[in-house]
């Protein structure tokens, strides 16, 4: 069956290498693929295969050596650093392995953080934060600091922070890597719901086969090369 969904992420001939001393270490070599809107994609591969680097490139926090990456129609490889930061603020939601909440800010303030970069009024921001925290079932924890929340709750706050600006894509780097089994299950369910119910596009790097099992498509990276063998476990 042909996929009729619009393409949200287009990756064309992307190369990326790191310099270690005088040595140039290739990390990604000629990566080309598309991600349609509403996709839940898992990037898998052994350590050092370049999956996190690829995720960073898509999220606009790292720069490719060559090639083009278009997200929602914007070629982010041509943007300046300042433009890229402004683009990230509206277009990318981040979910990290260690949640990366700001410890001195409450759950509410953490979720509000990306909204401060938008032109929303104080009242609008409050409404958006309330909606996002309700979506992750943490309406009763708004005034709690990260240290007062469990790992699973912290990751839910982080997801609320990732979705609060209604970004084009969500990127998740090992989102369940620091969680116990039950919390990990909850987080994955939450991410699935975001894809199915809200139509979000999620790109997730993971080692965890259970996490990858929730994805529609799994892409394997090996030594910087995309393995064409695509495991499509959960077609829509």
């Amino acid at each position: 069956m042909a996929d009729t969904r619009p393409i949200i992420v287009e990756i064309r001939n992307v190369f990326k290498s790191y310099r270690r001393g005088s040595q140039v270490v290739p990390v990604l070599q000629d990566i080309t693929f598309d991600i349609p809107e509403g996709e839940f994609l898992a990037l898998m591969g052994p350590s050092g295969s370049g999956k996190s680097t690829l995720l960073n490139l898509i999220a606009g926090i790292d720069k490719a050596d060559s090639g083009a990456i278009r997200v929602g129609g914007v070629d982010i490889t041509t943007l300046s650093e300042t433009e890229l930061a402004a683009w990230r603020a509206t277009s990318v939601g981040f979910i990290f392995q260690f949640y990366n909440l700001i410890p001195v800010l409450t759950a509410f303030e953490n979720v509000e953080l990306p909204l401060l970069l938008t032109g929303l009024s104080r009242r609008q921001r409050r409404e958006h934060v309330a909606t996002a925290l309700a979506a992750v079932s943490l309406s009763d924890r708004v005034d709690h600091y990260p240290s007062q929340l469990s790992g699973g709750q912290q990751q839910r706050v982080a997801i609320a922070r990732a979705v609060v600006t209604d970004p084009t894509i969500l990127v998740a780097d090992e989102p369940t890597g620091d969680l116990d089994r039950r919390s990990a299950e909850e987080i994955l369910e939450l991410m699935e719901r975001l894809v199915h119910e809200v139509g979000k596009t999620i790109i997730m790097v993971t080692h965890d086969p259970r996490a990858a099992g929730k994805a529609h498509i799994i892409k394997q990276l090996e030594k910087g090369v995309l393995n064409d063998h695509v495991l499509s476990q959960n077609p829509l």
Partner: peptide, 14 residues
Amino acid sequence: VAEIGTLRALGYQR
């Protein structure tokens, strides 16, 4: 450091 990285990733400028 990680906090700074997070803020920058979220879209805050240098």
